[in-house]
Design a protein around this nucleic acid. Structure first.
Lengths: 199, 199
DNA sequence: ATCATTTCTTGATTTCAATCAAGATTTTTT
DNA sequence: AAAAAATCTTGATTGAAATCAAGAAATGAT
């Protein structure tokens, strides 16, 4: 309990209500289905080959999802921060090995939900199922845009987009992580920064 | 009605059953919610700025989805053929302008569903809602992989992947469409083909 | 069948990021 | 505070795709 008069809204409730009309009553039913977990900086949440056991809502910290390709190069697909979801639904739902890797980039705490709890939630909290669907639509549209950006834009443009859209990430993460995210070498990123700060 | 003894299964039913246990009875309820439409080769189904009015199941032909970036370059995100879905759910569901473009690459016929029919279907055919969710998961996983491939692989690798995964597209489409899809110039594609057929 | 248009190929040059290599700076450890 | 490790910067070289430019081949129209 808090000593202040106004109770701060739970970050998960905030997220749910931001996308869908979600009642506090439903939230009371939903929250116990999550389990709080934490991961240390650089800890792997899951690796390619693992079956993903949870879907995660990030309370604190940030994670990266990446593939490792044939020549062993890591490629970060995206970075997710607090207030967002992360996981790998195909492996999670079908209980099959994933080809994705998920790593904590800082000390992190998350809310983790198992598959059976997810099924329970979708069956028993219709508004959660609705939120879930809306979230998928958003995710799909976002991934399409990422795909469009990744293939159309030059490194300089990708960097400027990042500065514009997520400037805090540049403070938060070492440059080699940003480089893996933008798909360039750290040397190139260093040069991009030089070019783009001089303006 | 057909003169043959065995009725060929409807391509949409095939697709629904391939991902989920979907009854013929439900299909009888679902099918009337779609309207058959056709598009001529090169016709734009929707353009950036439009509100997307339908979601499409492709009966015949193929489409490409693409963005047009700041300098006016087109970038094909993906190509969808018969038996697959296409559209843009975020614009479709929220009735907001899309930033995507959808174009028929051949003369095409599709089954098109409006938003109100979609809502009806999701509310009244629970198995359709289930299929819908599963399809989203697949779509998300597929987009992630595409994103991974797009940013990790070199043009030669992308080409060989295409030859392996969708060789028929190479017959079906002119080379400049393939080039826009792989994210290279037609000249580069021509050279890639030369390099990779000699082996 | 011929002409016109579209598409594809090939060559030369330019551009830009990767790689290799070394040094500078920052952070962590002791 | 000093030493060690990690991270970032800068320079030189290499490599691969874009661009520019001209032909060749295929397709479509009359």
């Amino acid at each position: 309990m808090q000593t202040t008069t106004v109770m701060e809204k739970h970050p998960l409730l905030k997220e749910l209500q931001s996308k869908h009309d979600f009642s506090e009553a439903d939230f009371e039913k939903l929250l116990p289905l999550y389990e709080e977990r934490s991961y240390k900086k650089n800890e792997m949440v899951f690796k390619a080959g693992d079956v993903v056991k949870y879907v995660f809502f990030i309370l604190q910290g940030c994670f990266r999802q990446f593939y490792i390709n044939a020549n062993g190069t890591e490629r970060t697909i995206y970075i997710m921060e607090e207030g967002r979801w992360t996981g790998e639904s195909l492996s999670f739902l079908n209980e099959l090995p994933t080809n994705m890797n998920l790593q904590a980039l800082e000390d992190c705490t998350v809310l983790a939900m198992t598959k059976s709890n997810m099924e329970f939630a979708l069956r028993n909290i219709p508004e959660y199922a609705m939120y879930h669907m809306k979230n998928h639509h958003r995710m799909i549209a976002w991934l399409k845009e990422q795909l469009g950006a990744a293939v159309t834009e030059k490194p300089d443009e990708l960097y400027r987009r990042l500065v514009k859209e997520k400037p805090h990430l540049l403070q938060r993460l070492p440059q080699y992580e940003i480089a893996k995210y933008l798909g360039v070498t750290p040397e190139t990123l260093s040069r991009i920064r030089k070019r783009n700060t001089k303006l």
